[in-house]
Amino acid sequence: MLRVLERRFFSSASRLLQQETAQGAKTLQVKSSCPAGTPLNLDIKKGGKNPVALDDSEYPEWLWTVLEKEAQEKKLAEDPMKMRKVEIRKRSRANIKQNNFLGQL
């Protein structure tokens, strides 16, 4: 149930982001969906504290560009070694999928 909600949240957030960029907003100010002070219910450790959402200005600027495909491609283009690594990983995954498919025949 939680995974479905997470998927729905991220897909709707990325859809809103795409709509805003399609409208031509040059000074795109993405706002988080959680107001500051909201508990995030992300307890991973048994004795750990529950993290609380911060104000939007307290997060780093790169966080708001993670879902933008163009920004990520631009960042990869600046570092050819990372780009090569990503290409090799994609090709390897495609080969593994093809081999698995052919192994089922």
Rank of each mutant, 00 (worst) to 15 (best):
F10R: 12
V86W: 06
F9D: 12
K75N: 04
L67K: 06
K85D: 09
L105N: 02
E68Q: 15
V4W: 05
S12Q: 14
K75L: 10
E61Q: 12
A77C: 00
K85F: 08
K31T: 00
P35Y: 06
T65L: 12
P35M: 04
M1Q: 15
P51C: 01
L76W: 11
P39A: 08
S33D: 04
V52S: 05
P80G: 08
T65S: 12
A36C: 04
E73W: 05
R84S: 12
M83Q: 12
S57T: 13
K49H: 03
N100R: 08
I44A: 13
A13I: 00
L54T: 00
L28E: 05
K90T: 10
I96E: 07
K97Y: 00
K26H: 07
V52E: 07
D79W: 03
Q98T: 04
L67W: 05
A94I: 03
I88L: 14
P80M: 04
E68R: 15
N95I: 14
V4F: 13
L63C: 10
A13Q: 04
I96M: 09
L17E: 09
L67S: 14
K31Y: 07
N41T: 07
V52H: 03
M1E: 05
R15Q: 12
R7W: 07
Y59E: 07
A71V: 14
G103Y: 01
W62S: 05
L102M: 11
T65E: 09
F9G: 01
R15L: 15
P39F: 05
G48Q: 10
A36E: 14
R7D: 10
V30F: 03
V86E: 13
E70Q: 15
R84G: 02
K45S: 09
L17R: 11
Q18C: 08
E87D: 08
S32H: 12
A94Q: 11
I44K: 05
S57C: 02
A36G: 03
Q72E: 05
A53E: 00
L16H: 01
W64N: 05
Q19T: 11
K31F: 00
A77H: 05
L67A: 10
W64Q: 09
R8Q: 14
R7G: 14
S12H: 08
E6L: 14
L63V: 13
A77P: 06
E68G: 02
L40E: 01
E6N: 11
Q19L: 15
L17N: 08
C34L: 13
E70R: 11
R3L: 13
R7T: 10
E20H: 06
L17A: 11
V4T: 11
L63H: 03
G48L: 01
T21M: 15
R8L: 11
E78P: 01
E87H: 14
E70I: 05
V4E: 13
E58F: 04
T21F: 06
W62E: 05
P35G: 04
P80N: 09
Q18T: 06
V30D: 00
K46L: 11
L16V: 00
A22H: 08
N41I: 06
E78Q: 11
F101Y: 14
W64T: 09
F9C: 02
N50M: 10
R91W: 03
A94R: 04
K74Q: 15
N50I: 11
E58R: 06
R84A: 10
A25T: 15
S14N: 06
K82P: 02
Q104R: 15
E87V: 12
E73T: 08
S92N: 14
R89S: 14
P51F: 01
N41K: 10
M81V: 14
